[in-house]
Simulated scan of single mutants.
Amino acid sequence: MKVQLLVSKWCPVCPQAERIWTEAAQKVPMDLEVLDVAERNGREVVSRLRIKTVPAVVVDGTLKTVGVQPLGEVLKLLGA
């Protein structure tokens, strides 16, 4: 499973989302990629999926959620 977490340097809650998703990646097998929306790879995903807010989570090419979820919600989202 490929998970892309889209973040921004100016986002006040993105570091919290990154911590939660990093912890989830230790519990559930996934390929976690953190992308800054100001960089090329992040802009490509934002443009393709028309993402308007960060943090945003893309799982296997599909936008799944935006905002910060508690670890339990993240694990549920991943089917754990």
Rank of each mutant, 00 (worst) to 15 (best):
V28E: 12
L71T: 08
S47F: 09
L32M: 09
V45T: 10
G67K: 07
L75E: 07
Q69K: 15
R43E: 13
G61E: 09
E73I: 05
A24G: 08
G42P: 02
P29C: 01
P70T: 10
R19T: 11
K64Y: 01
T22G: 13
G79D: 07
E33T: 12
A56W: 01
L78I: 05
S47A: 14
A80H: 12
A17V: 04
A80K: 11
V34Y: 05
E18D: 08
V34G: 03
E33C: 07
Q16K: 14
T62W: 02
D31Y: 02
I20P: 03
R40F: 08
E18P: 02
C11M: 09
T62F: 03
C11T: 10
C14G: 06
R50Q: 15
V46P: 00
P70D: 15
A38H: 09
K76W: 11
G61N: 09
Q16R: 14
K64D: 00
R40Q: 13
T53K: 10
R19Y: 08
V58T: 05
D31Q: 12
I51G: 06
P29G: 07
V13K: 15
G61Y: 06
K9L: 11
P12A: 11
D36H: 09
V34W: 04
A17S: 13
I20L: 12
K27I: 12
V57H: 00
M30A: 04
L77N: 04
E33D: 14
P15N: 13
C14V: 07
V46T: 10
T65C: 08
K76E: 11
L78A: 07
P15S: 11
E33K: 11
P15E: 12
L63F: 05
N41Q: 15
A24C: 07
C14K: 02
C11E: 09
V37R: 00
W21R: 03
A80V: 09
V7E: 03
K76I: 02
L78E: 06
I20M: 06
R19G: 04
C11F: 07
M30Y: 07
L35S: 04
L5A: 08
R50S: 13
Q26S: 15
V45Q: 06
Q69R: 15
V59M: 13
E44G: 00
I51W: 05
K27W: 04
E23K: 14
I20V: 15
L5Q: 06
V34L: 08
L35G: 02
V3N: 00
G67A: 10
T65W: 10
V45S: 05
V46N: 00
W21V: 03
V13L: 11
I51P: 03
I20Y: 03
N41L: 13
A80C: 11
E73C: 01
V28L: 04
V34A: 05
V74N: 03
